[in-house]
């Protein structure tokens, strides 16, 4: 019985609920609309494109949660995954 418990610990439905809740609250509290994210995305592409060619289709940007190094408190984070196709010449100068 105890062995089963150890294996199932991380699959407890309350942990699933807690994680989902934490994530959804970050969006609720930050009050981020999809439009806002689109605007951020557009600006990031514009800035980075001066230096490198990026795969706009593969660009993924989202709000998530991370732990602060100093005290391990969960804080909202903006995570952007930007695939680079190639560096532009002027960036190398």
């Amino acid at each position: 019985m105890d062995l089963l418990k150890i294996f199932s610990k991380n699959n407890n439905s309350k942990n699933v609920a807690k994680e989902r809740l934490k994530l959804v609250l970050i969006h609720d509290r930050a009050n981020v609309s999809p439009r806002f994210l689109e605007m951020v995305k557009g600006d990031i592409i514009r800035v980075i494109s001066d230096y490198m060619e990026i795969d706009e289709e593969g660009l993924d940007i989202k709000f998530t949660r991370t732990k602060r190094d100093s005290d391990n408190k969960p804080i909202p984070a903006l995570v952007a995954n930007i695939p680079i196709v190639r560096m532009k010449d002027n960036a190398m100068k």
Binding site: K14, K18, L21
Partner: peptide, 16 residues
Amino acid sequence: MVKKGDMMNIDDMIDI
């Protein structure tokens, strides 16, 4: 249900 880990406990909710 809390004991089985199938319901959020008091600390979970206070924490959030």
